[in-house]
Write a protein that binds this DNA or RNA. Structure first.
Lengths: 191, 191
DNA sequence: ATCGCGCCTTAACATATGTTAAGAGCCTCA
DNA sequence: TGAGGCTCTTAACATATGTTAAGGCGCGAT
């Protein structure tokens, strides 16, 4: 749970006093690889900060195929914005890929913290800003890059951790099939 | 400028007193069709709320080709998150497509408003939440939908205004070429 | 009025990615 | 130890989209 404070302080200068009084609002939990954190059609009111491990967001399309919306490293978070904003059900699932540790806080509690304390307000704003930056990079990748270039960008972003992600998950994340990724890896001389 | 208040109040219950004291922070401007609002490599410190018209965000790739990152209707906004967050230059251009009216406020001024007033804080949060929701839908569209389905989603989102957007801009927005869009429209019986 | 210039369409061909199916390698569990 | 299941690779073929080039159409400027 010391990890969580590090993550928070990377975004905003929350003091140890502010942290101690907020700590009871967080729930700490360990997950095994492959556990579902929340499902599509749930209404998760919490933000789950990932303090260790790798996880993913995924959609399931009409034919039942999975598509990875996002891959998440330690420092990232799991939440359903449409639930906390408009009360809708989550349009996607979230799941661990490796074993993971998380710290969850109710979105409403985080709003309350931010309404009474400027450091927590800054923290929440930075969470949104980082989310927007991440999505912006992904949008640009889909518009400007080929599948191979998107794969190279994934390798650069995840570095040594990239080997922890099964290739079929990487392919789903890149918006291609496992067969296409295999072909690309062969062309790149990785096989 | 009354339009701006309507847009703001759709997101948060800012009172007329709060609005009157904030109004001097906004700059109001009219644009002709095709004018650049800010360029890649600028460092725009303002958020430009679009009160009338249609505009676009676009990237220019290495070969000099344009790709539309986003199309914006009245109620939307133009800003460079990486500039206001990390001081980087904007990675994209913004430009009007039709004639437009905007109201611009410095991001720093908006932060100050939000630090001293909960309605403005709510407004800023809602701006981010809506941005995140919009990007989420777009991300899902690239992962789950064919080009034709993305075109149908665009038509549904822009409704009658869709005819104001030149087809080559729509194509760039969908991540395909004008030739492909023409083919798709023919298959759909629109030509 | 007409010339030139964008924008759109169409066609022919090229390329990237999807689909299906088969098989190899590896792990787990009975 | 062997069977089953999961992941990854490979191949052959299908389809969607890109590329290039040509022509039509409308519109604004001269």
């Amino acid at each position: 749970m010391c990890k969580l404070l590090q993550i928070i302080q990377k975004l905003a200068p929350v003091t140890s006093g502010e942290w101690e009084s907020a700590k009871p609002l967080f729930q700490f939990r360990s997950y095994k690889a492959g556990e579902i954190i929340f499902s599509a059609d749930d209404k998760p009111e919490e933000i789950h900060f990932l303090t260790r491990g790798i996880g993913r967001y995924f959609y399931v399309d009409r034919e039942g195929r999975e598509r990875n919306k996002s891959l998440v490293k330690a420092g990232g978070a799991f939440a359903s914005i449409s639930t906390v904003v408009s009360g809708d059900t989550s349009p996607f699932y979230t799941q661990t890929i490796t074993s993971c540790e998380t710290a969850a806080i109710k979105y409403g509690d985080l709003i309350e913290l931010s309404e009474t304390n400027n450091n927590w307000a800054l923290f929440l704003r930075r969470v949104y800003e980082n989310l927007a930056l991440k999505k912006e990079r992904r949008e640009a990748a889909f518009l400007m890059l080929s599948a191979r270039e998107r794969y190279e960008a994934f390798l650069a972003e995840f570095g040594t951790e990239s080997s922890l992600v099964p290739l079929r998950h990487v392919a789903m994340y890149l918006g291609i099939t496992d067969v296409s990724l295999s072909r690309i890896r062969k062309e790149m001389g990785l096989i």
